[in-house]
Write a protein that binds this DNA or RNA. Structure first.
Lengths: 248, 248
DNA sequence: CGCATGGTTGAAGGTTCTCAACCCTCGTGG
DNA sequence: CCACGAGGGTTGAGAACCTTCAACCATGCG
């Protein structure tokens, strides 16, 4: 097992790829420099745990690059993903010194970390920080509620279609474009991780993907690549009304 | 159908039952009086809608008394509860002028409402307000994630046991006591609403409650009353490890 | 090469849903 | 007064969907 590579802060906030989307998005130059003093980078290899639920966690962090998951596990081993952390997402909770969930790196992940205590102090001193965190937390809550609808009421087929549509929307938004028509995407998760996300078994995930392929809703390019001949048709399979994204 | 009884602000914040738990919990006397200027009360009868998802919503509010639900509906009518609003909980999102979900009064509900625009302004001017809202939102996010585990991975029996345990914990906390041993509780929801909460059909809810009764895990007192001979035994049926409440 | 990891597919079985009948309570109006 | 209907709840039978268990395939790496 490779050990975490704790690296020096090698990047300045000015040239940070998540400068305008992370917790620090609203900070002015002077506020940013105070954050810069307490920040440090850590990176994790694919499959490597970032923290275990219940463990002491003396930092909070922004995801700079890569994908990580937040999962919960029942005593008999059943696991459910409860969060998917993408670049600019925030990990940890101010004022709490223990991790609530298991966090695992899916791809190579770089975190911009802040020691918890000084960060907590800045939270009260810098309204720009707490306002932005509130906004991000409210967005996460909305996403969690959308996810609850999926887990509680959608069929396996609808869950898969919804997941692919979510990934497609996000890839489109990264390219500042609207999803629609034909597009190609890359699934960020294995079949097993998708199953944990969707509350299914990996076999059911595999079968439903095969079914959507058989019916021409999607085409596969390798294991992870997906070609969508018609985005709207996929959305039609997801059970959502319209585009599922009326929220701003 | 009875019409909503919009009532005057008849209570001062000093004697408000949710004074130290709602969004306003951290506010000082002077801050409170500024809130008091823009607040007004509204009440809703059982079954009455508070807002429909997508509708314009020009206020945010704290639940003063009663129980309300937040639900989402798929186009074919399947519905999933995504929030359960109890006294002191917050309804609405600052900075957003449309409701994201359907909100419905379950019992008689009294809301302490604030017009959105002045409230938004106070959010930026009064850190005590936004800090408290952040804290409440983070708690809700934790609850939503617990809920996702339930929806995605628990069996019908475990879902019912979990739900009863949640209600029991809350009733205990209202009496400032710890749950345990023998206790009696009152279910706040109909079988149908429980089904919407748990991602089940109402028949399955009814059957599982009957099964728990048959096996002596619970005893029924009327439709809503439940006697728990042994709280720990119930928790053992919920699938959670230990008491499910290690978070603070 | 051999093995580990990730993925696909099949058959059988079980949990939950659907459809349906029926019960109880309570409030209302003939 | 009591019949009746509405709302909420229980229970049964059968079907559907998803899981479980198992075999097998493809890829990549030491």
């Amino acid at each position: 097992m490779k050990v975490p590579a704790d690296t020096k802060a090698s990047t300045t906030c000015d040239e940070c790829p998540i400068r305008y989307r992370a917790v620090c998005a609203r900070c002015e130059a002077d506020e940013l420099s105070r954050l810069e003093e307490i920040k440090f980078y850590r990176s994790f290899e694919p499959g490597q745990p970032i923290v275990w639920g219940g463990d002491r966690m003396d930092f909070v962090a922004s995801v700079v690059s890569g994908v990580a998951t937040l999962t919960q596990t029942l005593e008999d081993g059943r696991t459910q993903m409860v969060g998917l952390l993408l670049p600019s997402d925030f990990l940890g909770r101010p004022g709490r010194d223990r991790a609530a969930y298991d966090a695992v790196a899916i791809s190579r992940v770089v975190l911009c970390c802040f020691r918890r205590k000084p960060f907590d102090d800045m939270m009260t001193a810098m309204p720009h920080l707490s306002q932005r965190l509130l906004e991000m937390t409210l967005d996460e809550l909305d996403a969690a509620r959308e996810w609850m609808l999926l887990l509680g009421r959608k069929t396996a087929r609808e869950k898969i279609a919804s997941f692919i549509a979510i990934v497609a929307r996000r890839e489109a938004s990264l390219q500042e474009s609207k999803p629609g028509g034909q597009m190609t995407i890359e699934l960020p998760l294995t079949r097993e991780a998708m199953a944990d996300y969707l509350g299914l078994t990996l076999e059911t995930v595999s079968r439903q993907i095969s079914a959507l392929k058989r019916e021409g809703v999607i085409e596969l390019q390798g294991k992870r690549g997906v070609l969508l001949p018609d985005f709207e048709r996929l959305v039609g399979e997801s059970g959502d009304d319209s585009d599922g994204g009326w929220i701003a």
